[in-house]
Design a protein around this nucleic acid. Structure first.
Length: 819
RNA sequence: GCGAGUGUGGUGGAAUUGGUAUACACAAGAGACUUAAAAUCUCUCGGCUUCACGGCCAUGCGGGUUCAAGUCCCGCCACUCGCACCA
């Protein structure tokens, strides 16, 4: 064995060995438990960044640890290859997106291989490959037949100057990122998936995801936003005008109605009201983002119309308000300014009547119609008032009484509403999977028949700079209708890239099946046992993938309910306290570090610097420290090996110091196993191994000292195998280990080594530590208490006071309460 | 605005179920080796105080519960992330 730690040579040798032995290719094996470990696949942006390194190292450590636990481990890798950056790069460098993407994939694949990740590369997929997206197109046509995919008008960000649709990120301060002209809202026909049909399931099944971070489940719960309320109708010109409210108990306080600017009644009223038309038009130019909606000034205009209150029969004015969303409920709300903060602000601004219908007893609960107080909107400890026959009821009582009355009058019904909206899957972009639809003047939207799939995205394209090239390519869009045979046009929109990432995890199981989207192998491997990815995907990607999994299940392609059993959301990688970005100039290129220190040092530091869920502060000197540790470990092992074969361990012959080190070895094995498996805190696992190495270095050179060191070094190599696999691959046979370290079983804890004859206990007086003492591990409480009271420094603090109580926590501490 | 999270030495972090605050590492300082430097090794390292033993203070801020609080509860402050066409 080499005396010097030489990462370049040993990493290349290990990687060649794994490649030559197909070490990470896996097949179905019913004799062993399967374990599917997956990290979110990368967008092939050009080269790996530190976030990738961290993400993939975490997953790799888990995969390798599970393999040492004897499981049949699948860890695949692929490419989320469609998306906007390829189009931007095409414009900037005059390279077609397909070519740019392919080059990036090639380079990044090499980088991943250099990092030694245990991937089964035979299952690699790229979502821009027609062999992949054809199944997505096929599945879309199935959903279309089942009525789960449908077309409707929806708003997009539109730049009039560039004649193009913009992504939210391309809208900067309400203006186009390229030409700086104001962005408008425009309605165009788009395809949607009825995710709202699955809202209840998506919400209920969150309870079964016990191994997901509570944070992510909460975010999804809020995103789905289930609410219980009542749909009720006011009457306007003899027609019912429906509103949705979660507060029917405040119905008697409704003093006006507010419509979304796009509401049909508002648009109708604007036809002969130029001022109103101008107002609605102005609102349509504003951003539609929720954060913008929440912070912008609340503006409105009276339509001049009035509607009849369903219970009181009174006439209330109908307004148009910019904060009412057409996409939620019915696009109209009943306004109860006394008990809703937004309505209150709006009523004060436009001098609309405020009628208090909820009261609360107690100090500071007087109703003041000039100042908003938070209790106005409370549902607890309140009673109805000014509501005629509905007076004196609590929230639920009033809710039920008023809902019952509306139902009996035929003017309303209880309803559950979701904030979740249907998933718009159309994108007016080039670099995506074509939507397999043919638009025929006679037959409407007709799905492309199965035998004509895939609809292949042309890759030889010219980028003019604006808009999708597909829309300028008659050779792509001119076709005939599959139903009537007449001339027709192909859909030129492509799918949202969340489509591809919603089912890729299942496709890895049968990556090369060209006769079906998924097969039995998918049911063998699914669900993913461990999924690892960034917290920024907590809502959208994970919700869409959960939805897709249920769609695939209902299509008969999968037999489980959820795609990801356990989820680990890793934090960001920071430099100088800020997210790494080119504009800040604080990026760290992993490649330079791999070249300088080797992959194992980079992996070790990434895992040591912070627990995986927290953000990680990058530190160049920390990387050096990680490298120093590996060199020290190498030296310790090399010196030990150079001393020849270690004698057999004789447990009875160990002196006290050797017994202590041996206890530490087995305590560390237990702790590291727990840290890898249950806690997933790899930083503390590494710290524990470092502590152990510090102890091993102090062992004497006697026969039994060398025997304990031998046992300790083998344990260290096994424990670090998942984190620094190349180094351990080289050390393992040098220490006499059989086979590859990656297939070695996880070391067993020798319970007998854990026994102690005495324990150090702390003695507190009134909660402050005053002494430490060694106590026999089998000492009873009374003798521990006795010994504690006898400590000199304890005695000092017990002068002139009376002992009231003594608390003994076995094995830990004694607290003497005295005053 | 709404939702979620974080806050501990000079720095990254540890303390897992309420029970020894600051493990492990980085940086810094001192020493050894060396002609010298690098590398390596040894020691010191929260603040104040004490010749020393020891003592007092300290986990963003202010309260509370408890024999005992970094950990639980209430109220603040600061920062970070997400918000539907970036992935």
């Amino acid at each position: 064995m080499e005396e010097q730690y030489n990462p370049q040579a040993l990493e290349q040798a290990a990687q060649a060995h794994w490649r030559d032995n197909n070490s990470f290719a896996v097949q179905r094996d019913d004799a062993r438990e399967k374990f599917y470990c997956l990290a979110m696949f990368p967008y092939p942006s050009g080269k790996l960044h530190m976030g990738h390194v961290r993400n993939y190292t975490i997953a790799d450590v888990i995969a390798r640890y599970q393999r040492m636990q004897g499981r049949n481990v699948l860890q695949p890798m692929g490419w989320d290859a469609f998306g906007l950056p390829a189009e931007n790069a095409a414009i900037a460098n005059n390279v077609p997106p397909a070519q740019w993407t392919a080059q990036n994939i090639q380079y990044m694949r090499e980088q991943l291989q250099q990092l030694g990740f245990a991937y089964d590369w035979s299952r690699e997929i790229a979502t821009c490959d027609p062999d992949y997206y054809r199944w997505e197109q096929w599945f879309f046509t199935r959903l279309f037949e089942r009525g789960l995919a449908y077309k409707k008008k929806a708003e997009v960000n539109w730049c009039e100057h560039d004649q193009t649709v913009l992504a939210n990120e391309q809208v900067i301060d309400g203006c186009c990122w390229r030409c700086d002209n104001p962005v408008e809202r425009r309605e165009i026909d788009q395809w949607f998936f009825k995710i709202t049909d699955y809202a209840e399931q998506l919400l209920d099944d969150l309870d079964s995801l016990e191994q997901w971070p509570e944070q992510v489940r909460t975010m999804q719960r809020n995103w789905i936003g289930r609410s219980e309320g009542v749909n009720l109708s006011f009457e306007l010109n003899g027609e019912p005008l429906q509103v949705y409210t979660t507060r029917p108990d405040t119905l008697m306080g409704a003093t006006y109605l507010a419509l979304a600017p796009q509401h049909p009644v508002a648009l109708a009223a604007a036809r002969d009201n130029a001022e109103l038309a101008a107002f609605i038009d102005a609102q349509s130019k504003l951003e539609v983002k929720e954060e913008a909606m929440a912070t912008m000034e609340k503006l409105g205009m009276d339509t001049g119309l009035t509607a009849t209150h369903p219970l009181s029969g009174e006439q209330v004015p109908v307004w148009v308000a910019n904060f009412v969303l057409m996409s939620y409920g019915s696009g109209a709300v009943m306004s109860v300014p006394a008990h809703d903060e937004r309505d209150f602000a709006f009523a004060r601004k436009y001098d609309l009547p405020i009628v208090q219908v909820i009261a609360r007893r107690g100090e500071g609960h007087d109703y003041d119609p000039t100042t908003w107080q938070d209790w106005y909107a409370d549902k607890q400890d309140v009673v109805t008032t000014n509501s005629g026959e509905f007076d004196g009821l609590d929230f639920q009582g009033a809710f039920d009484a008023i809902a019952d009355r509306l139902e009996s009058l035929g003017k309303g019904s209880r309803a559950v509403n979701y904030r979740l909206r249907d998933w718009g899957v159309s994108r007016q972009r080039y670099w995506g999977a074509p939507i397999p639809i043919i638009n025929c003047d006679d037959c409407g939207a007709v799905p492309v028949p199965e035998q004509d799939l895939p609809v292949v995205l042309p890759t030889e394209v010219e980028f003019e700079g604006v808009g999708s090239p597909l829309k300028q390519m008659p050779s792509f869009y001119e076709t005939t209708c599959p139903r009537c045979g007449g001339a027709a046009t192909r859909e030129t929109d492509t799918f949202d890239t969340f489509m591809e990432s919603s089912w890729y995890y299942a496709r890895y199981a049968c990556a090369h099946n060209d006769s079906a989207m998924l097969d039995d192998e998918a049911n063998y491997w699914a669900p993913v046992d461990q999924y690892v990815g960034g917290i920024e995907h907590a809502i959208l990607h994970l919700l869409y993938a959960r939805f897709y999994h249920k769609l695939l299940r209902d299509e008969g392609l999968l037999n489980s309910d959820e795609p990801f059993t356990r989820l680990l959301t890793q934090g960001m990688v920071l430099k100088d306290g800020a997210k790494m970005s080119k504009s800040k100039g604080n990026t760290v290129d992993p490649q330079a570090l791999i070249d300088r220190y080797g992959a194992d040092t980079v992996r070790l530091f990434s895992m040591f610097a912070a627990p995986p869920e927290q953000s990680l502060e990058w530190s160049d000197s920390g990387v050096e420290g990680a490298n120093r540790f590996l060199r020290r470990l190498w030296k310790l092992a090399a010196a030990h090996i150079a001393g020849g074969n270690a004698p057999a361990l004789d447990r009875a012959a160990l002196d006290r110091a050797q017994r202590d080190v041996r206890r530490k070895i087995h305590e560390t094995i237990a702790k590291v196993g727990d840290d890898y498996g249950r806690r997933q805190t790899f930083n503390t696992a590494i710290a524990a191994v470092m502590e152990l190495c510090n102890e091993l270095g102090k062992l004497d050179d006697s026969a039994q000292g060398r025997a304990v060191l031998d046992e300790g070094l083998r344990a260290v190599v096994l424990m670090l195998g998942p984190i620094v696999p190349h180094t351990c691959h080289a050390l393992w046979p040098a220490l006499g280990g059989a086979g590859d370290v990656l297939d070695a079983p996880w070391p067993a804890v020798d319970e007998s080594a854990l026994a102690r004859d005495s324990i150090e206990m702390v003695v507190q007086v009134n909660g402050k530590v005053r002494a430490r003492m060694d106590v026999a591990s089998d000492a009873d409480k009374d003798s521990v208490q006795q010994l504690a009271l006898e400590q000199d420094n304890v005695q000092r603090f017990l002068e002139d006071v009376t002992v009231r109580k003594v608390i003994v926590v076995p094995g830990k501490l004694v607290n003497i309460v005295a005053n």
